[in-house]
């Protein structure tokens, strides 16, 4: 695919990035701008509607989806630093409008322009190499929606490996769910806990100093568990490392002196 020249890209911030970790949003903007995109942040955005969709509330999902499409459809691309939200916009929106040909067509045209961040950089903007250096031993968790709905696996790894000094230490079962599952983690907390315990065990055994993933929900779940277990592992969104923006303390931490800065 040839690299489009300075496309107009809208950032879909995602609720969790907005509320908990704006750094991920700014890192995403930097990566997109460095790749030659003109980035805009439509300020009337809210949420992709996934909480309603996965709770069986079609009516509210549809209303939210209509607003999202109206807000974003004029851009060349819509990029989210989340496989889960991008998956909702790309794979589920057409289904939200099933039975309504006019909206379905609009949803289809919209969804074709939606991408998860690493997928967009790697597959659309042809970014294969990043310039910065970072001495770090990293392990990468494949978030489920990104992996199975969008087929994202090699893109973040290729980009990470292109950073001088980065070593990738794959964990066992990196493709297994972390137990977050949106509202699942509060509806069935004991089960969620058992699943994330298996995940943190595999992360710790990888020998890595840093855990990265592409979805803040999973990262908060895993970081929260690691912290409760007293782990010193550093947890970040992959965008922060790719953009070289690791000044903010890691997720669930206040310690700004970090491994990712090249200890």
């Amino acid at each position: 695919m040839s690299k489009p020249s300075s496309p107009r890209v809208a950032l879909f911030v995602t609720c969790l990035v907005d509320l908990f970790r704006p750094s991920v949003g700014f890192a995403t903007i930097k990566l997109l701008e460095d790749a030659g995109c003109k980035v805009d942040v439509p300020i009337s955005q809210t949420c992709c509607g996934q909480p309603a969709w996965n709770s069986g509330d079609r009516e509210n999902t549809r209303k939210i989806a209509e607003t999202v499409i109206q807000t974003f459809e004029s851009y060349d691309y819509i990029v989210a630093p989340s496989g889960s939200c991008a998956g909702m916009l790309k794979m589920h929106y057409p289904e939200v409008f099933a039975g309504d040909a006019k909206w379905m067509e609009r949803a289809n045209l919209f969804s074709e322009k939606v991408f998860e961040l690493t997928e967009f950089l790697h597959d659309v903007m042809n970014v294969k190499k990043l310039k910065q250096k970072l001495n770090s031993n990293i392990t990468y968790h494949d978030s489920c929606a990104g992996l199975r709905e969008l087929g994202i696996s090699k893109q973040p790894r290729t980009l990470l490996k292109s950073i001088k000094g980065v070593k990738l230490a794959e964990m066992k079962d990196s493709e297994t769910c972390c137990g977050f599952g949106g509202t699942f983690c509060v509806k069935y907390p004991e089960i969620s806990n058992s699943i994330v315990e298996t995940k943190t065990e595999n992360i710790e055994s990888s020998g890595a100093d840093v855990l990265l993933a592409g979805d803040l929900g999973c990262l908060m779940n895993i970081a929260g568990k690691l912290k409760r277990q007293g782990s010193t592992l550093e947890v970040r969104h992959v965008a922060e490392v790719l953009a070289g923006m690791t000044d903010t303390a890691p997720i669930c931490d206040t310690n700004k002196k970090t491994v990712a800065k090249g200890r």
Binding site: C185, V186, P189, S192, M220, G224, R228
Partner: peptide
């Protein structure tokens, strides 16, 4: 509480 019973919230 289901979250914080088992893990911290950032």
């Amino acid at each position: 509480g289901g979250w914080t019973r088992f893990r911290d919230m950032p």
